[in-house]
Amino acid sequence: MIDVVFLRALVPLVVVGFLLIVPGRVAAQSVPGHRITVGANIGAHTGSASRTDVAEFSALREIGSVRGTQTIGPYTVFDGSGSTLVWKRLGVGLAVSHAGGKTTASVEAEVPHPFFFDFHRTATASATDLERRELIYHVSAQLAIPLGSSTRLTVLGGPSRFDASQDLVSGIETSEQGFPFDSVDIAASQVERLSVKSWGYHVGVDLAYHGLKNISMLSGSALFDHLGVGVLIRYSRSRPSIELRGVEQTLLELGSLHAVGGLRVGF
């Protein structure tokens, strides 16, 4: 099966290739605007996925287990970037993205019985305010493509450094209902915060418009010689492995498709 993630990454790469292979009409144009661009965006970490983590615990002479299932995303993304052209239409850029939020996990535990081996009792609960945070540093190689006098399309890609934290349900505190002990309640869920740093990649396109000064009501201000607006679509990915209390979990899926928009300042 073709990896969906791979397909998502492939689309912008095809676009970049297309633009490089078919220079035609764009080759005759100069890059409009500025060599240095600084951007600030807000948008969405799109998509959501269910994640289940399993932790084991020792109780009543046996191993019990707790499964925490939570939905990751969508979140709000804050993004800041800076880039410069270094040769003709080629440039480099740095960006920082922050995405995160809180969610609720459903908790299902298999709790050992005090009287019998292999006769676990099932208990359910929920754990609230589970937090996930991603801080992603992107280093990009960029190709700027002018689209008219005020608009620039930038295709970018490169390595990303992920600094993430993820809350996982790691255990429970039980409350026995008493004899015959065939039922048990979860009094509280224990949550553990895992922090992970990993390398990944990103690809994306940025469409910037610096023609605000052409709008009559804004034309009087020198600010609009530099200020523009833009939208950025960036796909990033990293899949580090994690352990919860010594038990290896499914890979942590970091990054996603970020769709953001905001201001561009050119110099």
Binding site: L60, R61, P114, F117, E176, Q177, G178, F179, F181
Partner: peptide, 13 residues
């Protein structure tokens, strides 16, 4: 031919 709480209770094997 329960007490559900029991401070000194323990489960052995």
């Amino acid at each position: 031919g329960v007490q559900a709480t029991c401070p000194d209770c323990a489960v052995g094997e």
